[in-house]
Computed example of a mutant assay.
Amino acid sequence: MPLVSTGELVSEARAAGHGVAAFNVITLEHAEAVALGAERAEAPAILQISENAVKFHGGRLAAIAAATSAVARASSARLSLHLDHVMDVELLRAAHPEGFSSVMFDASKLSYGENVKATADAVRWGHERGIWIEAELGKVGGKEGEAPLDAHAPGVRTDPAEAAAYVAETGVDALAVAVGSSHAMTERTAALDHALIGSLAAAVPVPLVLHGSSGVPDDEIRQAITSGMVKINVGTALNTAFTGEVRAYLDAHETGVDPRKYLAPAREAMAGTVAGFLGLLK
């Protein structure tokens, strides 16, 4: 099936009062698992490749983007291709020739004024090329290379009035907000601020994005969507499923050397995780 645009999937989900999930792709097996899980759940999904994943592939986007796109096009599910947590402007500019319909431009480490300027520039560049732009306001901790951050610490969460001003000043198409989740959580114990989600949804005209959803329990995700969250990002949960199967196989087969023997169950475990998350969002 031809690739669908991220903006289309997010707009459809928002109009229906549903969520749409975006899953991080690191290897070919990740992409295949997302497509398989989406087919089983009979639901659309977003395949997203982060700047960190690009660094893992030697800083070269083309190969992993082409492989992920090929998997998506071969699937019967409605899938889009998204470039995630991009801080490098050169990587942002690589999105268009590689067929990405959307980019999350991450200027959250900058001061508010610098964030606005950099993001507005990214939005202008993206919109000239038909690319949907997501940005982040607030501090969603747990990113690789950053010091630990308490998701409940003062000043961490996104302020609705500031969010409204930010969206107006930058022209972004979606906004990732800090409401109690954190990246890279391996246990699903995060407690979200649902009143804040509701206030943010009322304050800004664009869809809200929940980063760090791997650490959020099922009921919290469902309530977050009811409160106004739309795009639900999932990464670590796939890696947990993947690594668990690889570890189990190698523990049981100490002399095994054929990667297909452990990558196949790892891919299957990720597909099950994908289908499980997609089932929450309908």
Rank of each mutant, 00 (worst) to 15 (best):
S69M: 10
S11Y: 03
V103P: 06
R14T: 12
H30D: 15
S69Q: 14
D106M: 08
S69D: 11
M104K: 10
V34W: 01
P97A: 12
T68I: 07
P44N: 09
R14I: 08
I64N: 01
H57N: 05
A53N: 05
G37F: 01
K55N: 11
V54F: 03
M104W: 10
G58I: 10
M87K: 15
Q48D: 09
E39L: 00
G58D: 11
I46M: 09
F56L: 13
E98I: 05
R60Q: 14
E12R: 14
A77K: 02
S11D: 15
V71C: 01
A67Y: 07
N52K: 13
V25S: 00
A66Y: 03
A38P: 04
A66P: 00
H30E: 01
A70E: 15
V89I: 14
A72R: 01
E98M: 08
V20K: 07
G59K: 09
L28D: 11
S69E: 15
T27C: 01
A63V: 15
A13N: 11
V54A: 05
L28H: 12
F100W: 05
H96E: 15
E39D: 01
A63T: 14
I49K: 02
E32Y: 00
S50D: 07
S69W: 01
A45Y: 05
A43L: 08
A53P: 03
A66S: 13
G113V: 12
L79W: 04
S76H: 11
V25K: 00
E114H: 12
A13T: 12
A41F: 03
D88W: 10
R60G: 06
A95P: 10
I46R: 05
H82T: 07
D106Q: 08
E29G: 07
H82L: 07
F23D: 00
G19W: 04
S11F: 03
A72Y: 00
S111L: 10
R60S: 11
E32S: 06
A21N: 06
H85D: 11
H18T: 13
S108T: 10
R93V: 08
A31D: 04
A65Y: 03
V103S: 07
R93E: 15
R78S: 13
G59L: 09
L61F: 08
E90Q: 14
A22P: 02
D84C: 04
L47T: 04
A66I: 07
L47F: 04
S50V: 06
A16R: 15
M104R: 10
H30A: 04
E114N: 13
E90N: 13
G59Q: 11
A94I: 04
V34T: 06
A62Q: 14
E90T: 14
P97N: 12
A38I: 06
A45I: 05
A63I: 13
S50W: 05
A43N: 02
L83R: 02
E39I: 00
A95D: 07
A15R: 14
P44D: 09
A15W: 04
F23K: 01
F23M: 03
A70R: 14
L61M: 09
K109W: 14
V10G: 06
L47Y: 02
E29I: 03
E90R: 15
E114I: 10
